[in-house]
Amino acid sequence: MNYSRSKGFGMTLFIVLLLTPIYWLLNMSFKTNQEILGGLTLWPQNFTLANYAVIFSDSSWYSGYINSMIYVSMNMTITLLVALPAAYAFSRYKFVGDKHLFFWLLSNRMAPPAVFLLPFFQLYSSVGLFDTHIAVALAHCLFNVPLAVWILEGFMSGVPREYDEMAYIDGYSFPKFFVKIFLPMIRSGIGVAAFFAFMFSWVELLLARTLTSVDAQPIGAIMTRTVGASGIDWGVLAAAGVLTIIPGVLVVWFVRNHIAKGFALGRV
C-alpha cells in the first residue's frame, strides 16, 4: 500500500473518531426529548430548533454566556497588560531572582485550583468582590498570567536585541519604542497569548463557579440546572453545550498557524 495514502487514511480515521462525540451532541441538540429517549437515531428525524429557542428566549440562560464572555475578556485584557512588560523584562534583562520568580510564576500554572478553593472564596468575599465578573477574571489570572508571560517571553526572545538598541540610538523613548516598534514585531505572539488566555479562562469552571452565585454565574454552572424534577432535559443540555463550543472554534481560526507554537510555550 502507498505509504502516504495509509497516512491520510489514519489521519482521517482519527479526525472522524475525534468528531463523533461532538457530532452526537450536535445531533441531539436538534432533537426533541421524545425522540432522544424514544430510541437511537443517527440524525434528527423531527428536526427542531426548540432547544435553542429555550436558551435564547430565557435571560437566565443567555446571561450565563454573557457573564462568561465578560469575565473572559476582562481576564484577557488584564493578562496581556501585565504580562507584556514582564515578558520583556524576562527576555532582555538579568536581574536578582529572575529564574526563581519565573519558576514561582510557573508553579502557579501547575497548582491545582482545588487547593485554593476555600481561601479564594473567603479572600474575594472579604474584599467585597464575591459574585462579580472581576473576581473570576482576577482568579483566572493566577494561571493565565504565568502562561502568557512564558509564551510571550518565548516570542520576544526571537527578536534580536539590535532592534532595541537601534531604536534608542534613533531617539525613541522606551514606551514609544515598546508600543510603536516592539509590539508590532511580536504581533503573532500577542495573538497566541490572548488566545490561550481566552481558552483557559473559557474552559475553566471550578473557580468560576465557586466565586459566583447569581449575577456573574458562568454558563457552565447554569447548565447543571437542566436537571429538573422530571429528569434531565437532554435536548436543552445538548444545545447549551453546542453553544459553548462555537466561540472557541471561531477564535481558533485566527491563530491556526501559531497555535502549536503557543502550546509549546513559544519554544519550538
Partner: peptide, 23 residues
C-alpha cells in the same frame, strides 16, 4: 487538520464531561 484537532481543547471542561456522559 490543525483546526479540527484543536476543537476538543476549546470545549469547556464540564461540557466535555456532558458530551461523554451522553455519548
Amino acid at each position: 487538520c490543525l483546526i479540527l484537532l484543536a476543537i476538543p481543547l476549546l470545549i469547556p471542561w464540564n461540557v466535555v464531561g456532558t458530551i461523554w456522559q451522553i455519548f
